[in-house]
Computed example of a mutant assay.
Amino acid sequence: MNSAKEALDRLREGNRRFVADKSNAGTSVQERRREVVDGQEPFAIILGCSDSRVPAEMVFDQGLGDLFVIRVAGNVVAPSQIGSVEFAAERYRTKLVVVLGHSQCGAILATLEELKRPNENQSRNLKSIVDRIRPSVETLLDTDLKHDHDALVHQSVRANIRASANHLRHGSELLEDLIQNEGLLVVGAEYSLETGMVEFFDGIPN
């Protein structure tokens, strides 16, 4: 099994291939499908946004059985997401967890809109997502960023990624134990819709 550093390097290399449009297909899909029928050994766990423009396997140029992917609008962390990460980290001994947000995130935009103009008729299910994002972005509205929409959205995306990564690090006794004793690493990253590049910026070891 890959160490966290090896897994991180593998993701970075895959993203570089994606950006350069040089996919490393290797094994045929059908052959790989047969290889993973009896089990999986994902080298990284990705908690990403549901946005259709950010499929983790493509962004990191990986194939069947390589990534354990959890997707939810706004890459928020709720009990089901924590449980999914716990499952993969413990069952498959995967050492790297990536919270993957992206530029121009619709869930972030919806949260900012809700903070500026509360919607009385908002679905309670959508509200549950907004409420998880709200604490990490509402303080930014009290800064000079409120005068620069693009900068506000960018910093809000990153603040939300940091909050989700921190929640995974400290919201589960199981994950805390794996971090302290088994080399599990939780990092935050942002995918650029404009360039295709992923920047790892939170929780990266020296």
Rank of each mutant, 00 (worst) to 15 (best):
E6I: 03
T94E: 01
M1G: 13
T111E: 10
D9L: 14
F200E: 03
E114N: 11
D202I: 01
S28H: 05
E31Y: 00
G74D: 04
L141Y: 06
A107T: 08
V97D: 05
Q81A: 12
R71L: 09
V59P: 08
E31A: 15
M58Q: 15
H170G: 10
L168E: 11
S50I: 03
L178F: 07
S80K: 07
I161F: 14
G63Q: 14
T111Q: 08
L126A: 12
I46D: 01
I129W: 05
V37W: 00
L47N: 04
V36H: 01
R53D: 02
K5L: 15
L96V: 14
E199Y: 03
D51M: 06
E190R: 06
S156V: 10
R169G: 08
L109D: 05
N125E: 03
A88M: 08
N160G: 13
H170S: 15
A7M: 06
R71S: 04
F68Y: 14
D177E: 09
L152C: 05
D61V: 01
I70H: 08
H147T: 12
G196R: 02
S3V: 09
I161R: 10
S84F: 00
V29N: 03
V85S: 07
V98E: 07
V187I: 15
G48A: 15
N119G: 06
G183M: 10
R158M: 14
L140I: 13
D148P: 01
P205M: 09
N206A: 15
N206G: 10
Q81P: 08
E35K: 11
G101T: 07
H147C: 02
E13G: 04
R91T: 14
A7L: 07
T27G: 01
V198D: 06
R91Q: 11
E114W: 11
A78Y: 02
I161S: 11
S52F: 08
V69Q: 00
E6F: 00
E199M: 09
R32F: 00
A25K: 14
I133Y: 09
E35C: 01
R93L: 10
I133D: 09
T143Q: 10
Q62F: 02
R12A: 15
R71M: 08
S28W: 01
L184N: 02
M197G: 05
F43T: 07
R91N: 02
A110R: 04
I179M: 15
E13V: 04
V187K: 14
A88K: 05
G171S: 09
Q155L: 15
S84K: 01
R71Q: 05
L178N: 06
A4F: 12
E90F: 09
H167C: 11
R12V: 14
